[in-house]
Design a protein around this nucleic acid. Structure first.
Lengths: 150, 150
DNA sequence: GTGTCAATATTGACGTGTCAATGAGATGGG
DNA sequence: CCCATCTCATTGACACGTCAATATTGACAC
């Protein structure tokens, strides 16, 4: 893989950054209308899918691929707003269990439908079946390449 | 466009978010080794390409598609580190001209080569010519779709 | 048990991004 | 000229992310 990138390759890279940035912006703005951020949404989704709406803090971090400290800060903010609660862990005195509150579950229900509609509107409705498959393939390739060269 | 998204479409969406996030992470970490953030790099690049290494603040904001206030905050931090300078604008007393300092130009030179190499390594080297064209097409489609439905 | 090392979660400092409000200067109708 | 209004850039408050400590507890050899 000697040599340098072509202008074309670089422009596709910049386009990827810009476009995904815009998509994020639109969707976080949309989520905001339901009173949750995209970080909140990610946490709420994970907890909603968990047994008893409850997860060890480290499991949650691993599940959404966040650094521990990032999660800790975010949970602090969510706890202040009453979306989650932190219980002590029975089996490991170091640990904490993050629990979805009723208020959190309600917020997730309220945000979910419009959010999925927005993803469909700005993303899914734009692409053909062939484009989906091509994109899936590209993303898989990129992911494999990253893992291989790390 | 009635109905809802398929699971597949949603999974491709999540994959897009996750993968581009990882790419960003790797590349900002790499840039950090040269002592600049990706925001810094974007600003330095724009100024490097500008006539006399100098731009009106609003032109710069438009050029890199940032909100004014975001740019203002970022310029404040870059100015503290001596990467840029802010001059009063001769033709409009409200305005400011952002000027690349020698130190800023030097930082950009230092960061540029390794950064481009990193983009090539994690992105360009991973994809085939067909994949590049497919991705280019997909991004263009998404962009057009966003503009059309805004 | 004790000492050592790893893991769990949090915290503080600081850089970053968004939104709303602000002040200073341009601009144009009357 | 005067006033309303727009634009330029900045600011403050706050949410968010990363990194480097920190405190506490678990695990395990001895």
């Amino acid at each position: 893989m000697a040599g340098r990138m072509t202008e074309y390759e670089l422009s596709v890279w910049r386009s990827l950054l810009d476009t995904t940035d815009d998509l994020r912006r639109v969707l976080t703005a949309q989520l905001q209308e339901s009173g949750v951020s995209s970080g909140d949404y990610r946490v709420l989704l994970a907890l909603s899918e968990a047994r008893e709406h409850r997860l060890r803090s480290s499991e949650l971090a691993a599940g959404i691929d966040w650094e521990r400290s990032r999660l800790s800060h975010h949970l602090g903010r969510m706890e202040r707003r009453g979306l989650i609660r932190r219980d002590d862990c029975a089996t490991d005195n170091r640990g904490a269990e993050v629990v979805l509150t009723d208020e959190g579950a309600e917020a997730f229900r309220r945000a979910g439908r419009p959010h999925l509609r927005a993803i469909k509107r700005v993303f899914a409705d734009a692409l053909s079946a062939q484009q989906f498959e091509a994109l899936d393939d590209i993303l898989t390739t990129l992911r494999k390449h990253m893992e291989a060269t790390t």
